[in-house]
Design a protein around this nucleic acid. Sequence first.
DNA 1: GCGTGGCCGGAAAGCGCTTTCCAGCGCTGC
DNA 2: GCAGCGCTGGAAAGCGCTTTCCGGCCACGC
Lengths: 343, 343
Amino acid sequence: MSARQVTLAEVAKQAGVSLATASRVLNGSTRQVSEELSDRVLRTAEQLGYVPNASAQALARNSSSLVGLVVHDITDPYFSCIAAGVTRVAEEAGLVVVLGTTGRRPEREVELLSTLRAHRARAVVLAGSRTTDRASQARLAAEIDAFTEQGGRVACVSQAKLGTDTVVPGNRAGGRALARALAELGHRRFAVLGGPAELVVARDRLAGFKAGLADAGIAPPVVVNGAFTRDGGYEAALELLASKSRATCVFAVTDVMAMGAMAALRERGVRVPEDMSIAGFDDIPTLRDTVPALSTVRLPLEEMGEIAAGLVLDAGGDEARTVRVAGEVVLRASTGHNILATT
Amino acid sequence: MSARQVTLAEVAKQAGVSLATASRVLNGSTRQVSEELSDRVLRTAEQLGYVPNASAQALARNSSSLVGLVVHDITDPYFSCIAAGVTRVAEEAGLVVVLGTTGRRPEREVELLSTLRAHRARAVVLAGSRTTDRASQARLAAEIDAFTEQGGRVACVSQAKLGTDTVVPGNRAGGRALARALAELGHRRFAVLGGPAELVVARDRLAGFKAGLADAGIAPPVVVNGAFTRDGGYEAALELLASKSRATCVFAVTDVMAMGAMAALRERGVRVPEDMSIAGFDDIPTLRDTVPALSTVRLPLEEMGEIAAGLVLDAGGDEARTVRVAGEVVLRASTGHNILATT
DNA sequence: GCGTGGCCGGAAAGCGCTTTCCAGCGCTGC
DNA sequence: GCAGCGCTGGAAAGCGCTTTCCGGCCACGC
């Protein structure tokens, strides 16, 4: 088996031209080749089923057609939406997407970046969330530097890294707007199911939410932290219930967490929104059909992926660009009016 | 900027050894190198921040560390779960996953395979569903042949392609078991929201379901075809309602379609399960918290991805292996007893 | 004491492609 | 009529690595 691969040399020989000519025909260099030879080469290439060896090209050109995409968990709809945006843009540009998953371990992010560097990836989109841990931050920054030094470009989604292009969702503003909208529904006592304390995204959303409450002259919320996952939301909600909090409305910093929280409430016989209103963040498409429909802050996730890919693919100047995308509050059935509203 | 990349040659020179020795140290060849030199090389490599050029390695070794993964839509939880399984196994094996999305266009699948071939990918997992269209089948088969000829391995999920390893979920058996289980709830008139007629997966599930009904002595279901997506389910359900079918239970061949269908029913004021029972297929984890909880046939999606990756990564013999994974009927709240059950 | 292996280092030949450089040729312009 | 230019084709030098092959060294055995 394993009929050896057709090489450019074979095509050239078969077509009776030099290696150089064949190469020029088959990849559109700046140089012209007469139509006759060009035709001949094209035809023989076709006939022999020639496929260029991407590694050899990458080596000779010193640049590959790989684009990295680093996410925590491709199963999480948040990331898969972003991934969809990134792949669409990359594929249109004729590039190939390398998917790396970190499982939320910072060191894995560094490893992946290093691997991507080994492959001379042209660019990489970091979609994971930034943590506040100093040490891993520093290692990541070093790796990013190495990557850019080598000529690669890096863009981040939602984590402003020094010197990289970034797509920044309005986490803070979204949280704030949501808090106000919920206050307008008459709620006065809030709880928040926050993500891990060290996650910047979670902190921003929480901070915005608190600010919004303050705007409305409402006391700060009870905050229960949990993992940034469905189960995290579930556990945090149970904890909240156990704490006998008197909150009438709970904000889960993520739709996925909100789903977990709703499951917990349901199990405990707490009705949504009658007994408790709940809101999330992200507006995950897959979850739009749930009952009761989840109030949330909509983020254009796929578009964010596209923007990130766009940033990272067109060279751009030297300085880091930042694209802000706004979140839009969407109130649905999971949040009701609080009839008991007092001052 | 762009401090040029550290090469093996530089490391070797700096360490005062030959290129060969440096290479042997830094990638564990069969040959031994004295501890002294080895240490020296390791140290300088570390010091200089040496990262091997993967393209050059791939070229020299004539094999890369890339594994392809082809899906229709990474946003679809079905695929993202499989993707998670594949990436986990691949990353453990020190390989890098290239993600390609087809947008359900068969020709795109062929293109991707060809790109993967150009990159000398070591293996590829095809997770897309097979269609019955002759022409695209043939082109795909040709491309697969070319890929394997070149030494790459191919595995498919749920589509038995000639000569490739395959992970086959029990679509037929699952559909059949589901039909029987629903019949036992007393339902006698069924409808099916089938996927596109040319999708083998959809057909198998439908065929199994029909067989199950036949087992129970029940008349064949009304079948409405729609796209293999949430919207497809939504549309199909509307169409079903418009047809004034008297079905008391509807089977959507996919959980995602079932979600769309439930949305349609809800909009039309049809209660689930009181007025209409509904069941899906796949048991998508993200959808497990929906209300009413969806009855379905559970497939171990991540595991299927892992198995596929495992098949494609360990060489195996020459003949195609097939691993069957069973679906498990899970009845939840979306299917109720049919109290009006007659014969 | 010398022949014979076994080991380890290094030189060098690729891997398949790109790209520079040079040679040849037909034109134009004076 | 010839210098000079622009254009096309080919030879060849890499790109950074792996791996074969060879040569030198040491240890061992007779």
